[in-house]
Amino acid sequence: MWTYIARRLSQTVIVILGVTLISFTALHIGGDPTFLYVSDRATNEEIAQTRVRLGFDKPLYVQYLTFIGKAAQGDLGKSLKFHRPAIDVVADALPATIELTLFSMLIAIVVAIPLGVLAALRRGSATDGSIMILGMLGQSIPSFWLGIMMIMTFGVQLRWLPISGHVPLLEPMFQGDFHTAFANLPSAIYYLIMPSLAVGVYSLSRNARLVRSSMLETLSLDFVRTARAKGLSEYAVVINHALRNAWLPVVTMIGLEFGFLLGGVVVVEIVFSWPGIGRLLFNAINQRDIPLVQACVIVLAGIFVAINLIVDLVYARLDPRVRL
């Protein structure tokens, strides 16, 4: 297994190099970013000085290799807008995004599994049909539209939930301040409900459909019939035997889900004024803050690859047939 982990980690480096190269190239395609960092009254001399100061005067491959060389030493450069180490800016925004992603995942799993199981058990019934229609709707509705509709309904009309903003939960925990984290918990959950639903509803719908189809397949297998023939209760048959076996494809999907949700938070973070890494990355791209974009990309890619690795390891643990 350790050989497998080492091999995967070496692949991780290649993946991260790839995404940094793609994002670096994409950011330079439009032209010289220097103009975004000088006044429109700047003289040519001032523009040239700024270009040198920001390092944009060097050939692109030199800029990229310099960046990679420093990144290998843990230095991702300074944000051109915030004038702080880019990794610090990302670290400030990351906890908010992880909160949102985890809560969305929680909703996507906790709600999807019972719905999927219920639909499978009542196959062909009105309940099954309703769940599947809702699932299809959930996968079709754009998250930003859903977010705005929820704001209008639960924020403006009913006034049940806060419209925008964020109460930190993970950040105080990371700083060891569990007292503040616990005190913030109720408010944090209130602020999380709408954005998490907006982010997670697609995954929720997909998971419910996946659980349903996986359960249907498992329920038709011989061992389930045997379990029933042995006189086991329906609960024991469904939960202990069928669901456990139907679980494998769902685990794979849930693992990938984290990366998917992480990438999907950008729009929702803007709609709900959520101060996370998605919004930070969006602004950094607009302002051509290249060190900050690269830092965001590296962190996001790193998380995505790490989660994939963990999923593979968990998968092997759950299914003894899988050999790493």
Binding site: I148, I151, M152, G155, V156, I163, S164, I270, V271, F272, S273, R279
Partner: peptide, 9 residues
């Protein structure tokens, strides 16, 4: 509050 409709809300 970056989104205009959220500001209005």
């Amino acid at each position: 509050i970056p989104e205009a409709s959220t500001r209005t809300a």
